[in-house]
Design a protein around this nucleic acid. Structure first.
Lengths: 141, 141
DNA sequence: TTAGATGCAAATAGTTTGCATTTGT
DNA sequence: ACAAATGCAAACTATTTGCATCTAA
């Protein structure tokens, strides 16, 4: 019988990768994190759930998920480490406060039409996007 | 008499920072690079122009320019290093080919209206944005 | 069964720091 | 004049790699 796997896990398998314990653990950490996580945070959470999972596998999984466009590394303010965001439907949008670094998520971006226009005009095939606005949040205005 | 400095250099000074040789060199490398450069590329170019400028100053300048929103670290495929883009008019848009990593720039994004709507609805004050599309370029389709 | 994935530890980047010295204003 | 910024080199931290072993399909 087919087991219960998250849709993202299915995508992993559909792409021809094995659903290993290490990968499923990293994925569930990301899914339960609800937002922007650094590799250090992922490492810590993974280690908390199963300390036998090695660092290298976590990084390999992050790279794999990135290659499959399941997550996307993003830079928020500090250098040295990207934060990873899940790309729920192949896209992601947020506002980053340039003063306090708070991240404000928002829904719909109306970029579908723009994507369609670009695909036609530039002969490309788009599969996802990231939209970041920078400015001051309500608390910092 | 006031010397000739680029508008971005002015912004640096206006923010209370000294216009040192190291900073001006990094800035002009970025301005002449016309796009996405990694720290390694900046280091190399800077070293080519003046090998007495130290690595540390280059990194310190990249951090400073980022803090002032003059450049923005962005992620293009590889881990370990962000690429820096100038934020010409407070915004930047491009398409990144997920296969060959080519970067395709495009103009107008029609986000002005969206920004206005978000400002009103979320009580924020936006000053810039970054829009990245991911997909296959014409050569890789 | 077996290609693919893993964990480990060592190697490799990439970036930052401390401090004496120099420089922009 | 003097706070701010620099260059150097050493210290750090984050990520990657090689390889023998293990495991999902």
């Amino acid at each position: 019988m087919s087991e219960e796997f998250s849709p993202r896990a299915q995508r992993l398998r559909d792409a021809g990768h094995k659903l290993t314990h290490a990968r499923l653990t990293v994925l569930s950490v990301l899914e339960e994190s609800g937002g922007h996580v650094t590799s250090a945070e992922v490492l810590e959470q993974v280690n908390e759930r199963d300390s036998t999972i090695g660092r290298a596998s976590v990084f390999r999984t992050l790279d794999l998920l990135t290659a499959l466009s399941i997550i996307r590394p993003t830079f928020i303010h500090t250098s040295l480490t990207p934060t990873y965001v899940l790309l729920p439907d192949g896209h992601h949008h947020h506002i980053i406060c340039t003063n306090c670094n708070r991240v404000i998520e928002f829904e719909e971006c109306g970029l579908g039409a723009m994507a369609a226009e670009l695909e036609q005009r530039l002969h490309v095939k788009l599969s996802g996007h990231l939209l970041e606005f920078y400015g001051l949040c309500d608390r910092c205005c």
